[in-house]
Nucleic acid binder design. Structure first.
Lengths: 216, 216
DNA sequence: GACTGCGGTTACCGGTAGTAACATGCGTGC
DNA sequence: GCACGCATGTTACTACCGGTAACCGCAGTC
């Protein structure tokens, strides 16, 4: 079975390359048609037909997962760099927020695809995974940020748990505010970054009550 | 055309009632099958066939919007009550967080449906609404909370903008952390509420650096 | 020259959203 | 009494989706 080693190698290399080509074609279609790009459309863009896609990626969610992994890895790398770019904690937070917002601003279609990678088939039949609504991207961001917080900030005993909670909260805040901002553009990116950092710095707790506000 | 007033009224009333019945049937199916409940299944549950559904609701997203409105209204009412239930601001925030989390904990299927009401067809053809990924529920929650903050907390000049930013950030935090918590259940609800409130109260800014952490 | 493996195709399956066209029962005008 | 709207309901269809089975043709090998 070793008589065709070099040929096997060629085949392997060309298969990987083919896969990369297909992913790039899929990328173009998703960028154009959004998250509901069809397998037919992707195959057509790649100049082939459906069954080949299925041979390479198994099913639609497989293709989408491969596609999402590429972009997610890129965004994660950018965020890690932002976290390490400065030494002051406040600056660090602002840089991270700004990097995320700049990314979703620059390529909103990609961002949208990452958040809704496919409504994803008919997974577990029973109970259909009650949680798990959030995109994998946000989970990964939360876990990564949780690690960073846990290892750099002293939160006392049980700080690991707390770090994860805060991390997922912060990621959610970033996502929620970012999505709203992207839709309405009510202010500049810098303004949004500063405001969110202020919020995290306890802005809500130190502000004064409104004169006529009830109860306070 | 006024000769049939009473009859018209009867028709109208019965049409509204029919609509309500259909929504209840749809509710049962969505609760059972999740967000990808089909129109056929809903029609069958209601004891009728598809075209009637379409006559009442236009299309699938119309039905889903009507369904979502009901639940959203309910949740919003509960949250408003929570906001008004106490006078201390910190308590208010904790009550609000807890009410939201209790709701998604009690009926995760409904929650999940509200967050993914239908991946929503092929709306605007071109550009497909770059933002607008977030569920309408979250938008509404953000706007409502923004109003409450703006009218009760004195944020100085331009405070209205800031209130909206903070509101959408807080809602995002609640949603992100809540979704993660619902999936992994890493701690009690009370613990999560306290931790998130601590985060909003500036916990991240006042914590000490870890001894060996780089840069700080 | 027959054989085999692999990239590629056509043609299909089951199920989805959505629609057209036909049927049927009820109250009203003449 | 009877034809007319008119709303309610049905069956039967289109068009498309994800996914698959079966076949086709061409490399390279024995």
């Amino acid at each position: 079975m070793e008589t065709t080693t070099t040929h096997q190698g060629d085949q392997q290399r060309s298969a990987d390359q083919r896969r990369r080509e297909l992913l790039e074609a899929a990328d173009r279609v998703v960028l154009r048609d959004g998250p509901q790009a069809s397998m037919n459309a992707i195959a057509a863009e790649a100049g082939i037909t459906k069954p080949i896609l299925y041979r390479h990626f198994g099913d639609k969610s497989g293709l989408y997962r491969a596609l999402a992994k590429r972009h997610t890895d890129g965004l994660l790398a950018a965020l890690r760099a932002a976290i390490d770019a400065s030494s002051d904690r406040r600056e660090r937070v602002e840089h991270t927020l700004d990097t995320y917002l700049a990314a979703i601003e620059a390529r909103p279609q990609v961002y949208r695809f990452l958040m809704h990678p496919a409504e994803d088939s008919h997974q577990s039949e029973q109970g259909f995974d009650v949680g798990r609504h959030t995109a994998p991207l946000l989970r990964r961001l939360g876990e990564e940020l949780g690690k960073v917080i846990a290892e750099r900030v002293d939160l006392g005993p049980g700080g690991g748990e707390l770090a994860r909670i805060w991390a997922h909260g912060i990621v959610g805040m970033m996502h929620g505010a970012g999505d709203w901002w992207l839709g309405e553009r009510p202010c500049s990116r810098a303004q949004l970054v500063r405001s969110l950092a202020d919020l995290l710095w306890g802005g809500l707790s130190v502000a004064e009550d409104r004169p006529g506000s009830p109860g306070f």
